[in-house]
């Protein structure tokens, strides 16, 4: 039983860290109504940049996270410019950036597809107070006393950063610029008629979104102690699945702070489900299929239900008012 508990705790930690990425997807997919496929590339970019910053440039892990987030912002800007300035459809613009980033990420990692951080200090290892971790001897008495495991430390860091990000986004989308962003997703023609440059709002949204994705990639890299060029593969589907799960579970809460939180909570639930089915003996390679099915079902069910209702409402005899 404790094995399962450990697995679930690890999954929850992963879920929160990936949840930051889901917040990014939420901005583009839900608020701006753009399906941005840059995410797979910018998530790996965040991880790769973070690993290289720590390994090669011996950067402080927190600074490495900031640089990774900025790298994500840059990736978002590329997609954004392709989409707004050159009017390439958003999906295609995202795919182009994503494909390009694969090579960029390999370049960043010096041609290696995987860079381990086993011996390096990370934001998470700083909180780990168990023997066996390299930093435990040098850790502060408080950390030693807490004696957190890697998973627990990841969870704590993840929750703190997730709360900070939800609060920051809640603030931002309440400001004048943020309101214009939401309005762009709602009715682009209207907000342009009210004097907003919608190209700028979309560009900004894509940059912000991918900044969060890069940040998440960096955190996951520090938590799992390696970066891999393939670590972002399927991230967009995980993001959409998490949003769908969050909506199903917490959709009745209308407050915007809840909507943002539901993205992170959805992510946690997604990774818990994943851990459970893996424990039950599912082949990990089938996980991407399962994610795709979850998203496809979530998108299909409302349409199918509506069609069924329409069909059922018809009667040849003529109904009543």
């Amino acid at each position: 039983m404790s094995g399962l508990f450990t697995a679930l705790l690890g999954a929850a930690a992963q879920g929160v860290l990936w949840g930051i990425m889901v917040l990014g997807v939420y901005i583009t997919y839900k608020l701006l109504d753009i399906a941005d496929l840059t995410v797979d590339g910018s998530f790996a970019l965040g991880g790769c940049v973070c690993a290289v910053m720590i390994l090669n440039f011996h950067m402080d892990p927190v600074a490495a996270i900031v640089v990774s987030a900025l790298a994500g912002v840059l990736a978002g800007a590329v997609t954004g410019l392709l989409h707004t300035l050159f009017e390439i459809p958003a999906i295609l613009a995202g795919i182009l950036t994503q494909i390009g980033l694969w090579s960029v990420n390999l370049r960043i990692m010096g041609g290696k597809s995987n860079n381990p951080l086993l011996q390096e200090e990370t934001l998470i290892s700083r909180l780990v107070g168990r023997t066996g971790s390299k930093t435990v001897e040098t850790a502060s008495p408080l950390v030693q006393k807490l004696g957190l495991t890697q998973s627990q430390a990841s969870l704590v860091i993840g929750i703190i950063i997730a709360i900070l990000m939800v609060a920051a986004l809640y603030w931002f989308f309440g400001t004048e610029i943020g309101s214009a962003q939401r309005a762009t997703g709602n009715n682009e023609n209207m907000i342009r008629a009210l004097g907003v440059n919608t190209k700028m709002t979309k560009l900004l949204a894509l940059m912000l979104s991918n900044g969060l994705v890069g940040l998440s990639g960096a955190l996951v890299c520090q938590s799992q102690k390696y970066a891999d060029v393939g670590m972002g593969t399927g991230a967009i589907v995980i993001g959409l699945a998490a949003i769908v799960i969050g909506e199903v579970l917490l959709g009745r809460f209308r407050h915007f702070a809840w909507k943002l939180s539901s993205a992170v909570i959805g992510s946690v639930v997604y990774f818990l489900i994943r851990a459970l089915v893996l424990q039950m003996g599912m082949d990990p390679n089938d996980m991407k299929l399962l994610s795709a099915i979850i998203v496809a079902l979530a998108l299909c069910v409302p349409v199918a239900v509506n069609k069924w209702k329409l069909k059922k409402a018809y009667s040849e005899e003529g109904g009543e008012d």
Partner: peptide, 8 residues
């Protein structure tokens, strides 16, 4: 539908 943002 064009002059207002329905979701706001």
């Amino acid at each position: 539908m064009m002059g207002t943002a329905a979701g706001m």
